[in-house]
Design a protein around this nucleic acid. Sequence first.
DNA 1: AACGCTCCCAACCGCCGCAGT
DNA 2: TACTGCGGCGGTTGGGAGCGT
Length: 303
Amino acid sequence: MGRAPCCDKANVKKGPWSPEEDKQLKEYIEKHGTGGNWIALPQKAGLRRCGKSCRLRWLNYLRPNIKHGDFSDDEDRIICSLFASIGSRWSIIAAQLPGRTDNDIKNYWNTKLKKRLLGLPTSHRKPHLQQQQQKKHQLQEQQQQQQQFFPSSFAATAPFSSSAPDLEGIPISHLLNSLVADPTHQSGNLIVFGGGDHHSCSSSDGSSIQIGYGRDFNHGLYNGRENMGFESHLYGGLETEKLLIGGGGGGGCEASSIGYSFGEVKPTIACPTDACHGLYPDGRSGAATDTSFRNIASAMYHC
DNA sequence: AACGCTCCCAACCGCCGCAGT
DNA sequence: TACTGCGGCGGTTGGGAGCGT
């Protein structure tokens, strides 16, 4: 036989927690711990709540050292980078941000970061005239920043937007669309990878055009973290007829200059756990997955 | 002041893997 | 081995807050 039912659903309270409930739960856990059994906890603590609800409330709100409020630029970068590398594994991302909860990060991503990277306004509320002017100014600044990172032909053009330039007549957005839809695509000269220092890769040899986002995207991740494989800064380049997506001084630049076809390089695609050491066609070691590739491609497309 | 719209976040829901029976 | 509960996770949602009209 199994265990007792989780909770009497008809007899548990739902909805927002009252300060009294918070106090009750906090005091109980501080005194007795969770006891390794969340389901039994509410009854012991005298709460008419589901165990799962108690767990969530404790983990996301009541436990000590929870950080609420604005995310720092560094936190932004870490979230973006990890999302590009491993996708929506919020618990793993949260583990890299002390004091932040997966729920917080998920909310932050869905409400702000995603929109920001998509280039959408964070608010759809109609701005005041003054705010509109402010916004215009911000846009100009943003465009200047983009110009610093993107080459002149891409300046002020959000990557993979419908207004992005074409590759031999094919809109970049379409290429990336098919890329995202079909990661097994082998026909193109498409290279995807991650890893390394994007600065060294972002410099093209003149024949290539960088498509990318995230100036200094990964800045801050190299302070002892690169061996965790979080680097997957996403920018790409059109090198003559080759579409390059990826990042990384080592991987990025080497692959772009070597010019492997996508089929050849596919196995090297951004390993989510150690993107710096992918398995390159010339035999260097590492691993990669379709999922990580898809995540990166997807993130690129959406960004 | 009232209303409508949008954003944001806390909380819920449902699924999955693991472990107990 | 099959069944079931638990813990954990990611996706989704409801409602309060803020803002414009």
